[in-house]
Simulated assay, not measured.
Amino acid sequence: MAQRQTSPPPASETWRTTGERVESLLTACAAGGTAARERGEELVRLVTDFYGAGLERLLDLVHERGGLDDTVQAALAADELVAGMLLVHGLHPYGVADRVEGALESVRPYLGSHGGDVELLGVTDDGAVRLRLLGTCDGCPSSSATLALAVRGAVESAAPEITTIEVEPAAGSAGTTPAQGPLVPVDSLYSRLREADPSGGNAGDASAVWEPVAALVALGSGEVERLSAGGFPLVACRIGPELFAFHDRCARCERPMEGATLARRAGGGPDDGVLRCSACHAHYDVRRAGACLDAGAEGAHLDPLPLLADGASASVAVPSAPVAAR
């Protein structure tokens, strides 16, 4: 029987592993005392500065010869590894506001799939990002989770120098006025995720991470599948070209969604989707953040998970502390 050929790990995984290895070696240096740790850190700093100077000179040479046009700059910024190196050395071609707007653009398909959106109001000189939630994201039960998992992750990845995220209510909504919008420290955005930890523990102690889930790409329209991402149980489905993911737990019977089916709502259009729990027969509106449609279940909903897909790959944001399936 022929053995299955395995592909080499993606370049992004290789350099992430290298970064983790550098950190572990520095930690090991600490075992030799403070002086050993300081020498290790100085070595890393000198090597980083050396290559940073070379990278800066490389960009200068390309620019002097007219090669650093908008197309090339966009390609550099779009490459995760190159963009990270440019950020470290202060050479990124785009400012903080442009990078944050680009990050929000990347998660808008997820927000839009639930009838919501987010608006960038500005970035202050001290590194505070001011946002406004729109549509169903403004005041919906899962808006805190949306911020914690989708928006925060995208913004911090694109602009690691930010300090806080200010969230202002939409015009006309209840609560504080836009001029007095609450200041939300970045670390506090995981509070709802911690409160909702189904294991009873504190799943938000570490944070949330984006986990690749290759099986989602092959999911056909109308199909439902229960999967695991980084040890976190999820149930996913596809409606046409769009993918949706939720924590694998029914909000009514609190059981895993084993045998769940996806159907069109009675009288609904072709893009409507209702996820049905096979255990208690509860019905959830997929496009409305998993809101329960059954009488007497107002406020009940599945826990949606941010999901990004480009047709060739898919990733889901889940708590970094694994949660065992029940």
Rank of each mutant, 00 (worst) to 15 (best):
T6K: 11
P9M: 06
E20S: 09
R21D: 08
L26R: 04
L26P: 08
A31S: 15
A36I: 05
A36G: 09
E38H: 13
E42H: 13
Y51K: 10
G54H: 11
E56K: 15
L59M: 14
R65M: 11
D70R: 14
T71I: 11
A77K: 03
A78P: 03
L87A: 09
Y94R: 14
V96G: 03
D98S: 05
E101Y: 00
E101V: 01
Y110D: 05
D117V: 08
V118N: 06
E119F: 04
L121P: 03
L121D: 12
A128Q: 09
A128L: 08
T136Q: 03
C137T: 01
G139R: 13
S142Y: 02
V151M: 01
T164F: 03
E168Y: 01
G181C: 03
V184W: 01
P185V: 08
V186G: 00
Y190E: 00
R194Y: 04
S199V: 10
A206M: 14
A215R: 15
A215K: 09
E223Q: 15
L227T: 06
G230Q: 12
R238Q: 11
R238W: 08
I239M: 11
G240K: 13
A245L: 12
R252H: 14
R255S: 02
A263G: 06
G268F: 01
G268I: 03
G269H: 07
D272S: 15
G273P: 01
G273A: 10
A282Q: 01
Y284I: 02
A295C: 09
A295Y: 04
A295T: 10
H301N: 10
L308M: 07
L308T: 11
L308V: 12
D310S: 10
G311P: 04
V316T: 07
S320P: 00
A325D: 06
A325W: 09
R326L: 11
